[in-house]
């Protein structure tokens, strides 16, 4: 079970959180102008990487705030957490 550093509450057990899937998938501003393929891309296509993964979490049983996290999906090491409106840290400067 991960120990997740909530940006607002500090380190808490994973059981207090809910994973919200891949981060930085912005909802298209004008969906009606997208073709089915482009819409499916937003809706369903995911990078699902082996390695560094930028994902969203919510501290569901805590402050209920959403945040982003950078995690290695192979080692499950958490490298960084950052606010929803922040740019993801570049790999390498997450220390």
């Amino acid at each position: 079970m991960y120990l997740i550093p909530c940006p607002w509450c500090g380190e808490r057990d994973q059981s207090e959180f809910r994973s919200g899937g891949e981060a930085h998938i912005a909802r298209p501003l004008e969906p009606e102008h997208l073709n089915d393929g482009a819409w499916a891309d937003y809706l369903f296509m995911r990078t699902n990487p082996m390695g560094l993964y930028r994902e969203r979490w919510v501290h569901a049983h805590g402050c209920r705030r959403w945040f982003n996290m950078l995690r290695d999906t192979v080692s499950d090491r958490i490298l960084a957490v950052y606010h929803m409106d922040e740019a993801p840290p570049e790999p390498g400067d997450e220390s």
């Binding site: 079970m1 994973s19 899937g21 891949e22 993964y53 994902e55 999906t73 192979v74 499950d76």
Partner: peptide, 13 residues
């Protein structure tokens, strides 16, 4: 488990 992971282990809960 709700997370993407290739670690071949999951949470104890």
């Amino acid at each position: 488990d709700g997370t993407v992971s290739y670690a071949q282990r999951g949470g104890f809960p």
